[in-house]
Amino acid sequence: MSVLIAIPARYASTRYPGKPLVPLTGANGIAMTLIERSWRAACSVSGVDKVVVATDDDRIREVSEGFGAEVVMTSEDCQNGTERCAETHANLAADYDIVVNLQGDAPLTPHWFVEDLIAGLRAAPEAGVATPVLRCDGDALNSLLNDRKHGRVGGTTAVFAADHSAMYFSKEVVPFTAQTYGGGDATPVFHHVGVYAYRPDALAAYPTWPAGPLEQLEGLEQLRFMENGRKVLCVEVEAKGRQFWELNNPQDVPKLEEMMAAMGLD
């Protein structure tokens, strides 16, 4: 099955304008833009036929082409990354069996997260879309709770059924737990990893649906699938000692750089 990875990137982020071009310094002291680090993460995934950056902004296009990425220009009307991926796939000459949306704010996404995601979707023909979830340890859960305590929108959490079909995604920390957890303790909270794998029919249908009330309230694009009766498969992935966090706010830059230094990531 052929696989395309598209990295949707827009300059006009509400919370963090210009985020794809923010420099992140690795363990070797060399700074690279967020979009380049995300592209490098995508290129490390095995079994992928093509990787492209999908953007509507010439600044992002110029920087991306400068480090060797293939760029697909998309409309300014795309409301989110899934719509941008749908337009990208429609604009390419080839049809792919699976389209992966590796969002441009998650440069610490390990290659096995995406490989396991693709394998999970392949093994679930009834699912049109799949997304990874990572069980939080105490440190990750406390980071999520700390963001909410200080009024910051941080990571997204997911709850799912016994068959791993998603029940809900939220920018609040769900499910509620009153228990206190130590740094390395396993918790009942799952961090949603901002990567998606779509079958082409589900991806093509997505832009034809209006944004529903839950998507608008949470600001989470994947809820549109659920609000239209499409199954979203949650694929549990393992950290294997890797720290994971997305760049959601300016305050996340030093956090990501500290993580890269601790893990020796260039």
Results as ranks from 00 to 15, higher is better:
R37I: 08
S38P: 09
W39G: 01
A41V: 01
A42N: 12
C43G: 07
V45M: 05
S46L: 12
V48G: 03
V48S: 05
D49S: 13
D49H: 11
D49M: 07
D49P: 06
D49K: 08
V51W: 03
V51T: 08
V52W: 04
V52A: 00
V52I: 09
V52K: 04
V52R: 00
V53D: 01
V53N: 05
A54D: 01
A54K: 02
T55W: 06
D56T: 06
D57V: 03
D57H: 10
D58T: 12
D58S: 12
D58M: 12
R59I: 08
R59F: 11
R59H: 14
I60G: 04
R61Y: 11
R61D: 10
R61G: 04
R61I: 05
V63T: 14
V63D: 00
S64Y: 01
S64E: 07
E65S: 09
E65Y: 09
G66F: 10
G66A: 09
G66M: 10
G66D: 06
G66K: 12
G68Y: 01
G68C: 06
A69G: 01
A69C: 08
A69W: 07
E70P: 10
V71C: 05
V71W: 01
V72K: 03
M73P: 02
T74F: 00
T74W: 00
T74M: 02
T74I: 15
T74H: 08
S75C: 04
D77S: 15
C78H: 01
C78W: 08
Q79H: 14
N80D: 15
G81C: 06
G81I: 01
E83Q: 14
E83M: 12
R84I: 03
C85G: 07
C85E: 08
C85I: 15
E87G: 07
E87H: 07
E87P: 06
H89G: 10
H89V: 13
H89Y: 03
A90T: 13
A90E: 15
N91D: 14
N91G: 15
L92T: 09
A93Q: 07
A93C: 06
A93G: 05
